[in-house]
Computed example of a mutant assay.
Amino acid sequence: MPRAGLNQQIVVREAARLADEVGWPRLTLAALAARLGVALPSLYKHVRNADALAQKVSALATAELAAELTTAAAGRAGTDALRAVAAAYRSYALRHPGRYPATQQVPDPADPEHVTAGERAVGAIYAILHGYGITGDDAVDAARGVRSALHGFVSLEAAGGFGLPRDVGRSYDHLIEALDVALRSWPGGRPS
């Protein structure tokens, strides 16, 4: 018998919180059931299995990240937009160390909300690129470059991969400055 008041939304939100506490790889149905105070079989009323739970957490986290990126980009262009979106990206990853990795999953085509969230997140990057005059296939390449740089940095930072005695925020700022220079001279973009 499922716990009264428990539904899929509550299960997924609590799973996201748990992932932030224990890490994405350690998010299990058993740990979630214990946290919710229910027997493991009770969760199957709300999620089909561990893969389905991971997909739902990914959809939630992607929607959250997309909202933060689009808010950061709103009303900005060029370097200002790049800096604002990069800051929002890093902030989200640091505040949500367990659910951030879930944002890197390709949206499930059978989940329209997940697809929409993914499109919004990537759309924020494309909006920045448009400000640099980068469109079409060139924008796909540039978006992959920007995402790779941001993801690589925040992933290394979250894993404690920066041990040298230098301010990590300063290094991130320099990375964004380098991206700005790269985007200004991107093949197929508008020269600046």
Results as ranks from 00 to 15, higher is better:
residue 55 Q to S: 14
residue 20 D to I: 00
residue 181 V to G: 02
residue 20 D to F: 03
residue 22 V to P: 07
residue 137 D to I: 14
residue 37 G to W: 08
residue 187 P to S: 08
residue 124 A to G: 15
residue 115 V to R: 11
residue 19 A to I: 03
residue 56 K to L: 14
residue 139 A to M: 13
residue 44 Y to F: 15
residue 118 G to C: 07
residue 137 D to A: 15
residue 157 E to K: 09
residue 78 G to S: 05
residue 111 D to R: 12
residue 116 T to Y: 06
residue 38 V to T: 04
residue 145 G to R: 05
residue 168 V to T: 15
residue 52 A to L: 07
residue 28 T to S: 14
residue 43 L to M: 01
residue 186 W to T: 02
residue 33 A to I: 12
residue 42 S to Q: 14
residue 174 H to W: 13
residue 90 R to F: 05
residue 179 L to Y: 02
residue 138 D to V: 08
residue 151 H to P: 00
residue 176 I to E: 01
residue 61 A to G: 12
residue 147 R to K: 13
residue 59 A to E: 03
residue 161 G to F: 12
residue 127 A to C: 11
residue 57 V to S: 01
residue 131 G to Q: 11
residue 159 A to C: 04
residue 183 L to M: 11
residue 9 Q to I: 05
residue 178 A to G: 11
residue 131 G to D: 10
residue 64 E to V: 01
residue 115 V to E: 02
residue 15 A to S: 09
residue 114 H to I: 04
residue 154 V to E: 00
residue 61 A to D: 02
residue 98 G to D: 10
residue 189 G to E: 01
residue 159 A to R: 08
residue 164 L to W: 09
residue 158 A to M: 04
residue 173 D to H: 10
residue 157 E to P: 07
residue 53 L to Q: 09
residue 139 A to R: 03
residue 132 Y to F: 15
residue 148 S to L: 13
residue 142 A to Q: 03
residue 125 I to Y: 13
residue 154 V to F: 00
residue 113 E to G: 14
residue 35 R to Y: 01
residue 20 D to V: 00
residue 10 I to F: 07
residue 96 H to M: 13
residue 13 R to F: 05
residue 190 R to F: 04
residue 95 R to S: 15
residue 73 A to R: 10
residue 33 A to C: 07
residue 152 G to K: 12
residue 9 Q to D: 15
residue 150 L to Y: 08
residue 107 P to Q: 12
residue 56 K to Y: 10
residue 124 A to H: 03
residue 84 A to I: 05
residue 19 A to P: 00
residue 102 A to V: 04
residue 174 H to F: 10
residue 23 G to R: 10
